[in-house]
Amino acid sequence: MTATATPARRTAPARASRGLWRDALARLTRNGPALLGMFFIVVFVLAAVLAPVISPYDPIAGSLANRLQAPGTAGHVLGTDLQGRDELTRILYGARISLQVGVISVIMGLAIGGTLGAIAGAFGGAVDNVLMRMVDVLLAIPGILLAIGIVAWLDRGLPQIMLAVGMTNAPIFARILRGSLLALREADFVVAARSIGATPLRLLLRHMLPNALTSLIVAATLALATAIIDVAGLGFLGLGPPDPRTAEWGTMLTDSTKYLREAPYLIFFPGIAIVISAIGFNLLGDGLRESLDPRLRR
């Protein structure tokens, strides 16, 4: 079909749709807050990827002679920490852990929650009932307690933290996908596909899942913000990476709490890093939600 839209009466000519994703992308690039969010995320990702290029210092080894140098000291823009390590270097390397653990934990959550939600939503009935009661059980345990429990159970380590944070998101993803799929089960195009003999698997994969993904994508983007906060929270509670010298934002904060009076910058800089990356994903998530469902826009 050619894009020869008939002009509506006394209004601007209607623009032909270029498909859900391209329309959404076009709306997203016009959304100021979402662009700001993307900018924060790009800075965050670049910091993580380019950490060794940007900083000449070692994030783990320091010299005690250099400890607690104030921000602005020559060669140490953000000062040095208790062990004389460059604070900026540790924040840059900390971005690596947050990004890595955040992204992988959300992927794990999507894999576990998405599978549960897809099965429950596609089959409905008893399967749905049993799976959703399992999800209810997981949802009844406060997220951070579940994560703390999993790390305590499996011992400290990055894969354990990823799984722990992923498991706190999994029931939420399961609920969202199941809800979208249940709503689609009786949609006209699904009924039509079913009536011409599409198999349940084909119905799920070709017709229902692509239409149910939008809300899951938004939830996953917003979950990245909470994942970064949760990872730092575990670090803050002493359940971070097993090597206490690792540059991880939450662990860096715990190390510095005793020096709140002498060196408050050791709290502020990692804190600002966590907040900016969380704001980035929150803004992008909100922007995606508005772009994918323009009715929500106010």
Binding site: I229, G271, N282
Partner: peptide, 22 residues
């Protein structure tokens, strides 16, 4: 509200401790 959902409790808590108490 954006800051509210993006600031972890421990960051806000420590900042409040420093500014308001210390």
């Amino acid at each position: 509200s954006l800051f509210g959902i993006s600031i972890p409790i421990f960051v806000l808590g420590l900042t409040l401790q420093y500014v308001v108490s210390v």
